[in-house]
Design a binder for these strands. Structure first.
Length: 554
RNA sequence: GCCCCCGUAGCUCAGUGGACAGAGCAGUCGCCUCCUAAGCGAAAGGUCGUAGGUUCGACUCCUACCGGGGGCACCA
């Protein structure tokens, strides 16, 4: 019995009470009842507070209401007991056979177990990382790579048609500094005062010189342009490669120039003008964002006739909508949170619904500690911690897991010494180990000629408390996935896997799965093997949603 | 001055109104002739930043304050 099925059973019981006239509700019977897993075992397998919630509407004492409901529910299929506790909680125990059926459901669904359709038919554009190609992806960007990619997986698993998008430009002040730094390196000069440092500058400069031996000797303008265009190309290739090795691939790399060349900026401004959202003042063209909650209006075209930064955002948003996306999700670091209100205002000015058609997820920063002291990162000094540094230190799995297991609302402090040395400190091993153990049992079973056979599966044999705990954990998985997708919080999947790993290890400790020595396999062995196979599936799927490998052996 | 995020066990963090607040790691004690000990069990560890408020019920919602972090351009 899954929580959803129990919810249905409770709704049916409510309806039956109302139909029989034993309870009068001022509102219609709810279509769904929230079912929770109590923290304390004595409170049963599942609990609901529905009687507390409906007590007033039924003009009844919540306990009395709960008593009626308990009596009605006790006769339902698969329910072993229903009792009232505290102020009116209804605690339910599920019959072993009904509980065991969860394992069958998992195996029948296979890799699709946990899938939901809350975003079916919806096209979502998910933009993240979007670092300009002036250097390797640094530690902050890595967080969005891990979380963003995982969120993409969750949204796809929830029925959405997801496009992962990376937005960049290759001109402007940042890129100029990059080009001047490359040229300085090629000429054997020190990096410019406002330039970039680090070995990668020298490496890329050397590659360009290898391609064009006279590159550094050309006139400044020509040389700069060459180092700019080739430098961007080489840098971007490196970024894509390191993201790929990190398990993150984008569907679209969107070049800002495209917006200007395609006339998207002009069209966006024309549209907003038509809607009466633009006005001229002090020789500049302004957007009335303050009408939609922004602190002040924003300049779109500067008085010198050049488009301001926001013009690109306007055009880009419009472009996404014109490409058919129902929803644009953008992940940004906390240092960009000031943009949120103007972006939302911009969305509203277009006549769209902020928070629905446009969503901006703000994540907090990653701090690095070494010897317990904060590490100062400087692009100029080249002391930036990159995606590759992180992967070299702890590997892709640990890095992705570590970055995805925390709420993006909280700042992460990463202790580099600890990660580089005692990587056991990372919970990813605890979770992966569970998968390896499960795989090992299934391998050994195959050697004994046993497999998880649903035809011979008797769910009622999974009677142990620890088996029930594990089954209930597996039954939670779809709810966890749906909630993580809905709230854009992949870390919920990681936390769930940690809890479930613990539940499995405890089960393993007291329930022997395979026959020992000359022992003949019994139906109990077979039933437990089905549970093991189902558990393995959930770990494989869950780790997959995080982009972390599920090892067969450790 | 205004805006956003955080403050929970020694450390890193879960917990978006429900019943005695949880995990991983670190530390104490115990458990490998048998499916992976990267595991399990036991003990220990907390004024959930502070003070009010809403509620039958608050770590969770509201207000104020304290502490930490990040932002507040006709820069990109």
């Amino acid at each position: 019995m899954t929580p959803e099925q129990l919810s249905e059973a409770i709704v049916a019981a409510l309806r039956s009470l109302v139909d029989a006239g034993r309870v009068q509700l001022s509102d219609p019977v709810p279509t769904e009842v929230r079912v929770e897993r109590p923290k304390v075992k004595e409170h049963g397998d599942y609990a609901t507070n529905i009687a507390l919630q409906l007590g007033k509407k039924a003009q009844m004492n919540p306990r009395e209401f709960a008593e009626l409901l308990a009596a009605e529910l006790a006769s339902a299929d698969g329910i072993a007991a229903a009792e009232v506790a505290g102020p009116g909680f209804l605690n339910v125990r599920v019959a072993a056979g009904a509980q065991g059926e969860v394992a069958r459901r998992v195996l029948e669904a296979g890799p699709d177990y946990g899938r939901n359709d809350q975003y079916a038919g919806e096209r979502i554009n998910l933009e993240f990382v979007s670092a300009n190609p002036t250097g390797p992806i640094h530690i902050g960007g890595v967080r969005w790579a891990a979380v963003g990619d995982s969120l993409g997986r969750l949204l796809s698993f929830s029925g959405a048609d997801v496009t992962r998008e990376y937005y960049f430009n290759d001109h402007g002040a940042q890129i100029d500094r990059f080009a001047r730094s490359l040229l300085a390196s090629a000429r054997g000069q020190e990096a410019p005062e406002d330039g970039y440092g680090g070995q990668y500058i020298h490496d890329i400069a050397a590659q360009i010189v290898a391609r064009h031996p006279d590159a550094a000797d050309r006139p400044d303008d020509e040389a700069l342009e060459l180092f700019r265009s080739e430098g961007v190309e080489l840098m971007f290739a490196e970024i894509k490669a390191s993201l790929h090795d990190f398990g993150v691939d984008f569907d679209v790399y969107f070049h800002e120039n495209h917006l200007h060349e395609s006339g998207a900026v002009d069209r966006a401004i024309a549209r907003l003008t038509e809607l009466g959202k633009m006005y001229e003042s002090d020789g500049a063209l302004w957007l009335r964002t303050s009408e939609y909650g922004d602190d002040k209006d924003r300049v779109v075209i500067k008085s010198d006739g050049q488009p301001a930064y926001i013009s690109g955002d306007l055009a880009y948003y419009l472009d996404k909508r014109e490409r058919g996306f129902d929803r644009a999700i953008i992940m940004l670091g906390a240092d960009h949170h000031g943009y949120v209100s103007r972006m939302m205002a911009m969305c509203a000015a277009f006549g769209d619904e902020p928070g629905v058609n446009l969503e901006i997820l703000i994540g907090q920063m990653v701090n690095l500690l070494r010897d317990g002291q904060p590490v100062r990162m400087s692009k100029r000094a080249g002391t930036v911690i990159t995606l590759e540094d992180l992967v070299d230190a702890i590997g892709v799995d640990a890095a992705r897991y570590a970055l995805a297991r925390y709420s993006t609302d909280s700042t992460i402090d990463l202790d580099l010494d600890l990660w580089a040395s005692a990587s056991n400190d990372n919970p990813v091993y605890y979770v992966q180990y569970a998968h390896a153990r499960l795989s090992s049992i299934l391998r050994n079973a195959a050697d004994l000629g046993l497999s998880a056979d649903l035809a011979a599966f008797d769910p009622a044999l999974l009677v142990e408390e620890r088996a029930g705990d594990l089954l209930r954990a597996l039954a939670e998985f779809p709810r966890v996935v749906a909630r993580a997708a809905e709230l854009r919080e992949p870390h919920r999947v990681a936390r769930y896997l940690e809890d479930t790993a613990s539940t499995f290890h405890k089960f393993y400790d007291v329930c022997r799965v395979l026959p020992q020595g000359d022992e003949e396999p019994t139906d109990t062995h077979r039933a437990r093997l089905v549970l093991v196979a189902a558990t393995r599936q959930v770990f494989a799927t869950g780790l997959g949603l995080l982009g972390v490998s599920a090892p067969e052996r450790m």
